[in-house]
Design a binder for these strands. Structure first.
Lengths: 353, 353
DNA sequence: CAATTCTTTGGGAGCGCTCTCATATTTCAA
DNA sequence: TTGAAATATGAGAGCGCTCCCAAAGAATTG
């Protein structure tokens, strides 16, 4: 079934069928209805390749997750991001394709870049969780290829959508300070990701503004996985300098940290309070219910797609940079509302975002 | 940069450049090297749309996850599956695009089908975790579109790759029986997924063969999420008929079940032993370490891709059906001692059908 | 050495669309 | 009514490749 055959069946020209398919208003209603009928009756769908070739648009955008498989994609964070991105695409009849780079196979990453981006398989790309030094940002910039980052970039002046991680982290830590905790520790993300850097910066600022110096022995590095959080917490507990509260840079890691506490026979928040980041706790089902800084992950994904699409449409060069608001969710694990702290209280309880 | 321009620069014809790009052996070495040089120097990459249009191959296959967003994609199972599929694609220079259907938005699912499959955006599709009654299987069958399921299909004679879930579950439950547990319960997956059905069947068979009747009050339904496992376990604990061992149809649910036990003040395996399915525990970091039936998830993904690609290449109609072996991993949660003892026991020895 | 075969190369004909522009038709103001 | 403007439709020219076939040249054979 080609457009030509439909045209013949409907007794109109190829052009008219094309107009109907693409919703062009310059078609008489009578004709439109008739043609649409023929299209439906024959189950015709325009060939994607032909369409892309002629229009120079594939109507696909990519979601690139660098070094995804090993570590990052485990985080439920990504599910929300993906969902948001898919929603953003649906609204404009675009398709989302996942571009997953392997951890260390540079060749395959290069291949993706050349084949998918240079070969114009996609119209634009959203890049999630890139590391600061990832060369892809600069390459895309040079190639003039439409893209947007989820998470700001420290060096390059590029399009992105992000939350204010510094201020958000600072607020979280200030909250712990207000609770009266004296020895507030931190589990960070990988040091080459901007979200890690910013959240740690916020942690440090909050301490400094309250007149304390951050203690390096209270900080451990995680990798945004549950296990990473578990190990980081263990490390902190074992070095003989036990914190009485923790700011953990992601809920997934916080869930691991809570388990490490439990396994060490400690109680949260009584022995060690915990504050997370992301707003994913209802998925992780931690005990006690995790206090966290909620970021609008789906909106982040949706917005990133929007930015990319607007850059695909108009070839302006000034980057679009947007910050979305976060919100504090105070629950049991930081010491607020002891009611939620009781064990056996139900998996999915807790406040909403 | 088009093929024509490269041809001009190299002083050869379009056809010769095409041959070099596609690795056609019918080119003199001298010419090939020269043309390749020009290609590299100019950073030429063939246009995907043009290529697809002319060759009638997009070199992309899809990974369709029906109703993915809501529930299923949360399971780390999918990370392994995706990774395997990506690997399978890499080996043959194919690309993998993720087709995520939303839970209830039929319209968007239809859109995906029409645009992506009928519009020939992809050459074939791997379908993961489909529900038994999903109409897509029949539609693809009718359309003669290359596809393969991860997980067998009870009604249609289609291509798939799977493990022998019945035998594997049976072995797991037999192991619990050998431990001497008397009241062995089960947490199942959604009843409209074949893996759930088969694993439950294996559970029932093991009990029956040891001369016991399965007790419905010891069975609860989960949905393959951690929370679902938590709730199912809670339900079982609350109905006053406490099991002394559980066979749980996925590690993710088992991790939730273990937490429910903990929250209820019970210990595993002393109070209730737990046996999982999947072999994902090292990601979930459960306490105690989970005994589980390991299935080769990555191989499943890779194999599914292989099957699809072979169907794309040759248009034979006889379906390919493959079973991959599982392996029992005996650890602490079933009562097998604290050591990480892993005993290999081929459950569903692979056999081509 | 002519006849045949094999290898290498080039050119033409699409693949199935979109997009621009020309033509046919309708509408409306003067 | 008539000319101009607005609207609807059709035809042609590609988009950048691949694939088939023919031509040219090199190698092989009796």
């Amino acid at each position: 079934m080609t457009i030509e055959e439909i045209a013949k069946l409907a007794g109109v020209s190829r052009s008219t069928v094309s107009r109907v398919v693409n919703g062009d208003p310059h078609v008489r209603d009578e004709v439109r209805i008739h043609v649409q009928q023929i299209i439906d009756d024959n189950g015709y769908h325009p060939n994607a390749a032909a369409r892309s070739l002629a229009s120079r648009r594939t109507r696909i955008i990519g979601l690139l997750v660098p070094r995804a498989i090993g570590v990052v994609l485990q985080d439920p964070f990504f599910l929300h991001l993906i969902q948001g991105a898919v929603e953003g695409c649906n609204e404009t009849d675009y398709l989302l394709t996942m571009l997953l780079e392997s951890a260390d196979v540079d060749i395959s990453n290069q291949r993706v870049y050349d084949r998918v981006i240079r070969g114009r398989h996609i119209d634009g790309v959203v890049i999630a969780s890139s590391v600061v030094e990832d060369p892809i940002v600069e390459r895309l910039q040079q190639d003039g290829f439409p893209f947007a980052l989820v998470g700001r970039h420290p060096h390059h002046d590029v399009s992105f959508v992000d939350v204010n991680n510094v201020d958000s982290a600072k607020l979280a830590v200030q909250h712990l300070i207000e609770h009266g905790y004296r020895r507030i520790g931190c589990i960070t993300g990988p040091p080459n990701m901007i979200a890690s850097i910013d959240r740690y910066a916020g942690y440090v600022m909050a301490l400094q503004e309250s007149g304390r110096a951050p203690d390096r022995s209270l900080t451990a590095e995680g990798d945004f996985t549950r296990r990473g959080g578990y190990r980081a917490m263990q490390e902190l507990l074992n070095n003989g300098n036990r914190p009485d509260a923790m700011f953990v840079a992601s809920d997934t890691m916080a869930s691991g940290a809570l388990q490490a506490l439990r396994d060490a026979g400690l109680r949260a928040p009584d022995d060690v309070a915990v504050f997370g980041f992301d707003g994913l706790d209802h998925q992780l089902v931690s005990q006690p219910v995790l206090s966290t800084m909620v970021q609008p992950i789906r909106e982040l994904g949706r917005e990133a797609v929007k930015i990319v699409l607007s850059r695909v449409a108009s070839n302006e060069s000034a980057p679009t940079q947007r910050y979305l608001p976060t919100e504090m969710a105070l629950r049991a694990s930081c010491g607020c509302g002891a009611a939620d702290a009781a064990a056996g209280n139900g998996a999915g309880r807790g406040g909403d975002a």
